[in-house]
Write a protein that binds this DNA or RNA. Structure first.
Lengths: 351, 351
DNA sequence: GGTGTAATTGTTAACGATAACAAAGTTGTC
DNA sequence: GACAACTTTGTTATCGTTAACAATTACACC
């Protein structure tokens, strides 16, 4: 019996007005909850609305109010857990505030594709956009680009004059490093992410700072590209050093990988090389992907509250859009604290 | 120097017309590539457009044409790899066709939330929607719901009268099961997904059929909920049967998990129980998440081409929206073939 | 009962584009 | 050179809503 797509034109406000015997403006007032409408009138209009199954046309509404109530989101690699979670948080918050969101995603965010994305959003009349710019270059490009709507950056750092929301990556790295040092390791090796990523740089900085503060040696960091494969390669290299005295005189007994996927790759390399985790080497990651708890062994990592990132971003953006006479001289930067999750990959199992 | 959000009103078509000394209609014609415009005129208009930095207002356009060029996507669990990949494919295809997409996602798709989501999309004036309805109930609800726009379902099965796109889950399960049987296993155990999911049911059916055709015993399937934890629990149960004769007389030497995450959980349980993979038991999963290649050992699994699913869905939807006088009596069902990926979890390593 | 104020409703004009039709201007043909 | 047919351009109406303002009605108070 269900027949979608009825061919008949949808009822308009004028239809409702006619049926209810009032002017269309009165219908509009009822719909927008205007206080000065008699209860009788309101009820009559409501009845007509229900009867016709009337729905406000948001396009006409947008044209008249000059408000599209649409926000844009620009992101890359949305199939990965981190970006996907952030985008989900963003979309949910926006919807709760009565906004529609349009997401533009692509492989990576070059200056060109960012320009392209913002142009696309502009053409669709978004009132503002959240741009996830984890790469330094993307953040810089965003700052230089002109756009006719306010923008908030996520993971774009707080040294630019753009409102931003980010997780304290530096702190996360310190938590991990301190945890490992606290377990008795003399130092901690690091497999970093690509250094043009702000998150990767911040994690490395946090790791380095924690080692310095503890007076520990700082082994040369290895650089990966976030993928399990790059972690695997780094792991093969590291495996060769296990049990031997390094040139710098430091043992390799603990590794901090800049994300969980690389940690997984490292674990595979170690496994193949006969290096036991955590007996020979302790390993920690970053992100707390859902699988991390079930790695072999379960992975110590850092959890980021992506939903909170989403909420904060939308809040900041709406402040810019809706907050009229607010003081705009201060550029807000919202920082969210991550949380250390300790699991078996860094703690000796009780046998 | 970059100052976003200029307060001056954006230029309108009338502004361009005035500057170029033509009527706004001529500007419209130039913009939409109408053939009957003199080259001189077109150039003049173009110059005025560039000079003012004019951009067509899509809201006004939508009101006049009654076409919003917006598509909706309804999905659940968009932080998981599968849904995230599908949504990404969807969005990319839609954008390539000049449509904007608005995604509505939530935890799970109950009948109520589906109604809610479609209502939301309807209010925003989408011209059509792709609904990912992996649960039987959701698919059925979608079929019964009334909506003023065409809808395509993804993973919603092809037995309803809704255009659909789905991966051949049954075939995927057969490929895995046949592969395991081909490796010499007398039978294959199955840890299934929740049976109200069509994909879970189809995978189980494929597994069962492959066993039947090979004349193998069909051990009682265990039911999980897709999570690594549920796989872990099932794995603990299965681990107890390894090496012993089951009641049905069949050995437990091979397990097919309905997704990679549960396979991961099973692997952890086996590891803890001292069951070696693949020496004692072979394990295979489904989905080919990016991490699967780096599990311990690398996981044999089935890869689904989510990008293809996205492309096919958008194509089907646009056929419904744009294809005017086409024959609408046939409900199209597009099926995409999955691909078996063999890795170390099912093949004895060459030592 | 007149008057001022507030509450309620209606009328008309935007919003910024496209659609439909009308009016010029060109070209070709005999 | 007249007429038809086709190009090219302009005018006006329209999409469905909200904004601004006008008009009416109700009520309180002197």
């Amino acid at each position: 019996m269900p027949r979608p797509a009825e061919e008949t034109r949808l009822p308009t406000m004028a239809d409702v007005a006619q049926l209810a015997g009032v002017s269309h403006q009165t219908v509009s007032r009822v719909l927008s909850g205007h206080p000065n409408v008699r209860e009788v009138t309101r009820a009559g209009v409501q009845k007509a609305i229900d009867e016709l199954g009337y729905r406000r046309n948001s396009t006409a509404r947008a044209l008249a109010t000059r408000r599209t109530r649409t926000l844009g989101v620009v992101a890359a690699d949305t199939t990965l857990f981190g970006p996907a979670s952030t985008v989900a948080g963003l979309a949910e918050s926006a919807r709760a505030e009565g906004y529609m969101v349009s997401t533009v995603s692509g492989r990576a965010l070059s200056r060109l594709s960012l320009t392209e994305a913002l142009k696309h959003l502009g053409e669709w009349g978004v009132e503002g956009a959240v741009v996830i710019t984890p790469q330094r270059e993307a953040a810089a490009a965003l700052f230089e680009l002109r756009h006719p709507f306010p923008v908030v950056t996520v993971e774009g750092g707080h040294d630019l004059e753009i409102p931003s929301v980010s997780v304290d990556q530096n702190l996360g790295a310190r938590l991990v490093t301190d945890h490992l040092l606290g377990c008795g390791h003399r130092t901690v090796w690091h497999v970093a992410g690509p250094q043009d990523w702000l998150e990767a740089a911040a994690r490395m900085a946090g790791w380095r700072a924690a080692l310095h503060e503890a007076g520990a040696d700082v082994p040369p960091p290895l650089i990966g590209d976030w993928s399990p494969l790059s972690g695997y390669r780094a792991g093969q290299e590291l495996a060769g050093r296990v049990g031997r005295r390094g040139a710098s005189g430091s043992d390799l007994t603990a590794v901090f990988a800049a994300n969980d996927q690389m940690a997984l790759g490292i674990m595979r390399a170690f496994r193949e090389a006969g290096v036991r985790i955590p007996v020979d080497v302790a390993i920690a990651g970053f992100d707390d992907i859902p699988e991390a708890e079930f790695f072999a062994p379960p992975l110590t990592t850092v959890r980021q509250d992506f939903a909170a990132v989403g909420r904060a971003s939308i809040r900041l953006l709406l402040d810019r859009i809706e907050g009229g006479d607010r003081d705009r001289t201060a550029i807000p930067h919202h920082v969210i604290e991550p949380q250390l999750i300790v699991r078996g990959s860094t703690t000796t199992p009780v046998v």
